[in-house]
């Protein structure tokens, strides 16, 4: 048992690892296979999480605690249970052999980057996509912090939200076992998303790019003002440019990330050059061709790398035409509310 492989590097895996590693990690493996630039990293398998929970006694303690609670019918009880369960998990020491695996993988990652204390992100991965339900930590530095955050990602399977979701969807309350993706953290100068079809109209003759200073969270959130560009897919000629008055962005702090105001002089200038724009669009077009349908891709520009080789891709998935997640918060809210009214 203990000889089983717990850690998988991106270049070793692909889609078939969806169940054992979680969707996020499996997809990154696929992207590496396709040859697009992916920041290096590894995935801690879901089995590792399961072992940690079983071998430290956390699983048993949690089962007992949940039995003690009886039927949970109110959010207040769920919150209480979540708090206690997460404490139990986070107080446990990771078994030595697991700790060693994670630490040595982190060391390898550091060596690859040529940095002693490499900054990484630790992201949760479940077999089904559950955006925002579990924890994600960005800009994590040092072995001790990495181990701590990995444990916290594991324990986020028992966040109040996650527990309540399982309770209200008839899923066993202790069933979320999470994979953890540990990836080199890119302290992006500029980041954003690119669609190889117009997300609202479905026009597949264009590529749409949205970008902001700082980390990708500032664009994906849909709450910040961003630059928007439309390119002709065939020629990658820029058709439309809309430079926003970019007020806020996400940047790395010492450990972690924070929202900050964009410095005055950067607010109304384009956060991406034409050349970079065409490169980003080019990657997206390539992914569309290889995967057979329009793609929604997250990308970032690494300030520490030279131009022409400084773009990383973090995620790609099919654009759902017509029901594409609109950036306008009002439309997103309306989608949610309509959907809820129809749930019987």
């Amino acid at each position: 048992m203990k000889k089983d492989k717990l850690i998988f590097w991106f270049e070793e895996i692909g889609q078939e690892y969806n169940d054992s590693l979680g969707k996020k990690g499996a997809n990154l493996g696929e992207m590496v296979k396709l040859g697009v630039p992916v920041a290096p990293g590894f995935v801690i398998s879901r089995e590792t999480c399961r072992r940690f929970m079983a071998e430290t006694g956390a699983s048993d303690q949690i089962s007992q605690l949940i039995a003690g609670f009886g039927k949970i019918t109110e959010i207040g009880q769920c919150e209480k249970a979540s708090h206690e369960i997460r404490s139990i998990i986070e107080e446990k020491e990771i078994p030595l052999y697991i700790r060693k695996e994670i630490s040595s993988s982190y060391s390898k990652l550091c060596k690859r980057a040529g940095k002693a204390d490499l900054s990484v992100s630790t992201r949760s991965g479940a077999p089904a996509s559950r955006p925002g339900m579990f924890d994600t930590y960005l800009n994590v530095r040092g072995k001790k912090q990495v181990l701590r955050r990995v444990k916290e990602v594991w324990s986020s399977a028992f966040s109040t939200r996650a527990m309540w979701y399982r309770l209200t969807h008839d899923i066993p309350i202790d069933s979320d076992i999470l994979g953890v993706t540990v990836q080199t953290f890119v302290n992006a100068r500029t980041a954003g998303i690119v669609f190889t079809a117009e997300p609202v109209t479905g026009d597949t003759s264009v590529i749409v790019v949205e970008a902001n200073w700082g980390l990708g969270e500032g664009v994906v959130s849909g709450t910040m003002r961003v630059d928007r560009f439309v390119l002709e897919k065939e020629s990658l000629r820029i058709q439309e440019t809309a430079i926003a008055d970019k007020g806020t962005h996400f940047i790395a702090f010492e450990q972690g990330v924070e929202t900050k105001d964009v410095p005055f002089e950067k607010r109304n200038v384009p956060c991406i050059s034409e050349k970079e724009l065409r490169e980003v669009a080019g990657f997206a077009k390539f992914l569309e061709q290889r995967l057979g349908c329009p793609q929604d891709v997250e990308w970032a520009i690494d300030p520490d790398l030279p131009a022409g080789g400084n773009i990383y891709l973090f995620q790609t998935r099919p654009v759902r035409l017509g029901t594409q997640k609109p950036q306008n918060p009002m439309d997103r809210l309306l989608n949610i509310m309509v959907k809820r009214r129809l749930q019987r």
Binding site: P131, G132, G218, V220, S221, G222, F250, T259, L333, M337
Partner: peptide, 12 residues
């Protein structure tokens, strides 16, 4: 709230 939910939650 995660940042991608804040804006619409605020409206609601």
């Amino acid at each position: 709230l995660p940042s991608d939910q804040r804006a619409w939650y605020r409206i609601l």
